[in-house]
Design a protein around this nucleic acid. Structure first.
Lengths: 140, 140
DNA sequence: CTAATTGCAAATTGTTTGCAGTTTA
DNA sequence: TAAACTGCAAACAATTTGCAATTAG
């Protein structure tokens, strides 16, 4: 992916900080916390401040470049939004790997809801567990 | 519901603070934040401290008396667990009303996951939108 | 050049902890 | 009476803000 192009498309300035944040997210195949991102980015840009991380995460989220996961266990995780359009996530609890899922459960339930007078605007469906690699490790 | 009985069943001491917390959750038909709960409980017990709220929410959660929702928008919401067994939630973004849903999307996806070698342990499915009452108000 | 962006320091928010006194069973 | 529980004050972690200096376009 061309990070510079991605930013220019959104009319965001191409700063080293922004590039680093996106690069870190891109080179990870899963979800990362703000702290995880900071820990990685500071290796590239030793002067970066946490506030820059937060400000950019918010901005990139707004622009739809990232998506955000809030697991039941608490905390907030970020990942690069690789899939276009609507999708859900399967997330490994051990390594954080994130697998996109194109199946969406809403179709099955939408009619019943509207019959009850409920107007759905958003929904979430997330699956947590152990990925192929991590399942194997646990068994060993 | 008999709150005292509920607590005794869990071998928890019946304190006025605990009763108040559960009563507040019971009289609400939806999800509440820790702050919401505090605001209500302090009307009944003017000396209660936030730490008592948090400690009890954690405890009641552990015992399965409450359940917890972490919306995409952030924050943590609590509600009395009225339904037995596994279920999902439909939540009104305006009034916080929570409707239990017995439909579970996992059945449709489980096979595909195990074929990919992914071992699911938990999942979540939540729907947000506007309940019957609030949809009507918005249209008016 | 100028509007956007950053680093820094301080503030804020939400939650947790240690402890001594109180209450429940 | 012993263990569980509470209130208080202080600690803590995560996130946000104001501001002056810097930088990308």
């Amino acid at each position: 992916m061309d990070v510079e192009e991605l930013l220019k498309k959104q009319r965001l300035k191409v700063t080293p900080q922004r590039k680093a944040i996106i690069n870190v997210l891109e080179s990870s195949d899963g979800v990362l916390s703000a702290q995880d991102i900071f820990t990685e980015v500071i290796k590239i840009l030793p002067n970066i401040n946490f506030s820059t991380i937060y400000r950019n995460l918010d901005l990139l989220l707004e622009r739809g470049i990232l998506c955000r996961i809030t697991p039941e266990s608490g905390g907030i995780l970020y990942e690069l939004r690789r899939e276009e359009g609507h999708h859900h996530h399967v997330i490994c609890k051990k390594c954080g790997a994130s697998i996109p899922l194109d199946y969406c459960p809403m179709g099955n339930i939408e009619k019943e809801l509207s019959r009850k007078g409920f107007t759905p605007t958003e929904h979430r469906f997330e699956i947590y567990g152990y990925c192929n690699k991590c399942s194997k490790k646990i068994k060993e």
